[in-house]
Design a protein around this nucleic acid. Sequence first.
DNA 1: TCCTTTTATGAATCACTATTCATTTTCTAT
DNA 2: ATAGAAAATGAATAGTGATTCATAAAAGGA
Lengths: 201, 201
Amino acid sequence: MCDTVLSDKQIQKRAAIVNAAIEVFAQYGFHEAKIAQIAAQANVGDGTIYLYFKNKEDLLIKVFEEIITKRLDQLQSLLDNEQTAMDKLVSFFNHHVALFSDQPFVARLMAVELRQSPEFLERYPTYQPLRRYLGFLETLINDAIAEGSIRPIDTKSLSFLIFGTMNFVITEWSLSHQTFSLNETKNTIADIVLHGLLPRS
Amino acid sequence: MCDTVLSDKQIQKRAAIVNAAIEVFAQYGFHEAKIAQIAAQANVGDGTIYLYFKNKEDLLIKVFEEIITKRLDQLQSLLDNEQTAMDKLVSFFNHHVALFSDQPFVARLMAVELRQSPEFLERYPTYQPLRRYLGFLETLINDAIAEGSIRPIDTKSLSFLIFGTMNFVITEWSLSHQTFSLNETKNTIADIVLHGLLPRS
DNA sequence: TCCTTTTATGAATCACTATTCATTTTCTAT
DNA sequence: ATAGAAAATGAATAGTGATTCATAAAAGGA
């Protein structure tokens, strides 16, 4: 059943499981999260989960995929409001941070929980949600270069710079219980990346 | 015994366990690494490990602490060769990357395995090896600002930028089986951080 | 050398929970 | 309404490997 078309009732049940999984994974982490607890939270039997997902790891991966896919679609449409490629790039950056500060558990999912999954680690280099995200960012960067808003620079390196920095900032922020201002940090970083570190003459 | 002064023979035995643990954790990851295998690799009985470490998690954490502490000391003395604060900062950056590319398992340990440990995650905000590392970087940044080599900027943000970017780059590099040039990426990133992204007039 | 204390051993335990599957409930079509 | 199919259930299973601890070896002192 796991792969066939689902009825409305089944779609709802699946969604209930996904939502329960998000909550429980977020609160307890992958290894401490018990299938029985997710099932209880979703109001389904333990076994039901296995009708919709191959196993616990599959559930974790699917949950993350759905979150990211949904977010990417949102981002894409948000960026349609922006005129220039540079505006889109800046907006992406801002929304990227906002996504995580609005939903810290997504940050934790990505920074911590996903890495508990051997399957995820194995597929890391081709893991679609991550690649789509990075690819999207690279496209924006290329456009901004073409437009002349930023100087020509290796696209991959810059995407690593942006994504990596924010990943770390978000991890620090999330694991240190939000003890500093994500927004101020974000702005300082944007300023450095745009203008550079060297004193201005 | 775990906390008392150790005889020479005990120091050797402990070191054998640490070395075995590094190898096995690096090869299999925390959860797949079996205590029995570490013990075999170290030529000690399974139970012996528990005379030197509280449990498997403690072993992981201690292993990482020892690697980082040793590395920080090395870094510190390497930087003594540099004259200006700015040179020290650049040198730190280069050595930081070199550490991970020389010993990819350390990268994996930090990016992946450590996060499997609830104790690590709990102590994250005050986890000494990490704080010392970041603190050291912040000191270098402050000195470079004082010296006038870089413009005044929030120190923490910049340390996040440097450390976070390289963390991500290293993770990508390590999990994607070293398919791009760490060195070129590093240089591009250094150039962006120093000069900024905007076109030069 | 012999006795005491310290250290090491590794087989057996034991707690754990993801997963299965025989049974029950719900749905669908006639 | 009813048979047969599909979906859901949750109690029982089963594999796990970290940790313990009774026993053995080694070290140290007299």
